[in-house]
Nucleic acid binder design. Structure first.
Lengths: 190, 190
DNA sequence: CGCGACGTTGATTTGCCTCAACGATTGTGG
DNA sequence: CCACAATCGTTGAGGCAAATCAACGTCGCG
């Protein structure tokens, strides 16, 4: 069953009766996407949220100056959402691109909003997940302030080896906030 | 009433019946703290959450190397929480220091946890707040990757003039992730 | 008054970027 | 399947952003 991974993931975060869990998951629909295709593109309005079953995505944004900045990579067991665009129905500033052929479970906006109203535990689930994400972003900021690009690179390799192995150096550099030329020089050193 | 600010703040985030709002707020207790004193210190376990009524706080962390990194400043209408320490009851990595004589509304851990169980709307409130905070941290990361220290400095002055006016240059530099010497040189330029 | 934290300034060094050139790898159309 | 283009990775020269170290003036505070 393709829903097992999602159910496991949810149960890791909260306690939930199995009938509620089943009902919640029933709104998620399997969806396949090919390498290099976009699940969401900057400027469009996000009408879904997704949970990755297979493959890998890169979530990035391009600012007015043309700088491309990678926020994170989402592999199996990660979520794909643009909260700002999804909740406020405004144009997204994010791109979600499949780095390889991938499979996700998608839920539509109206179903998600309905779940919030009908199953209070869903509020708790996303409250807990958001808070965990918040902690991670704060830690990342501190790392960025206190470590050099070289240290951050090795930390990334150490913590996400299975994700890193799927990425090009250019993508890693964009995530670290450095040029790919400089990343190449870092690699030569160590 | 010192609770008006908190009530206004909550109503900006969610719709909530006034009886629930009253009940929720009743668990918050006023608390005063003197300039330079700590509401929370790194290493201790966080047993409260707070909402700032007056004054200003600096939330920062010191890593093994002795680098001090300021995560944010909390003035009137902001929250003081260390989610990681509060939820998981583990030693905090954050310091919350009053930059001037301040007043906060504090809620104890057991009361907060009870509120989650008894008033589902509280889950929604903190889900919404966490998601908004998440968006802000993501934007900040992109700024840090795409802008120079000078640009980030002026952006900070522009967006938070009332907070910036209360801070020393050293505190601002720590927030921007630069040395105070370099901040001084930035100021001379513009 | 005198001490300690803050702010400024200059000289030097380091981390990282820009630009440019060149192999290596991957993708694509005939 | 090959030929070619496109993208990726590497390397080097030079430059800019920001750190480091050190000296000195200033201010608030005991």
């Amino acid at each position: 069953m393709s829903y097992d991974l999602l159910k496991q993931h949810i149960k890791k975060n909260i306690q939930i009766p199995s009938n509620e869990l089943d009902r919640m998951c029933s709104y998620f629909k399997p969806f396949g996407i090919k390498k290099r295709d976009f699940l969401l593109q900057q400027g469009s309005i996000c009408k879904f949220e997704g949970f990755v079953l297979e493959g890998c995505f890169r979530i990035f944004t391009t600012d007015k100056k043309g700088n491309e900045s990678t926020l994170y990579f989402a592999a199996c067991d990660w979520w794909l959402m643009d909260i700002d665009s999804f909740m406020n129905q405004k144009p997204s500033s994010l791109n979600m691109q499949a780095l390889e052929d991938s499979k996700v479970l998608m839920i539509e906006r109206k179903d998600k909003l309905a779940l919030y109203e009908t199953i209070p535990t869903v509020e708790k689930l996303f409250r807990v997940m958001s808070q965990n994400a918040l902690i991670a972003w704060q830690r990342l900021l501190v790392r960025n302030h206190s470590e050099t690009a070289k240290e951050r690179y090795h930390h990334f390799l150490e913590v996400y080896p299975n994700i890193a192995s799927k990425l090009t150096d250019k993508q890693i550099a964009s995530y670290l906030g450095i040029t790919h030329e400089f990343l190449s020089k870092i690699k030569r050193q160590a």
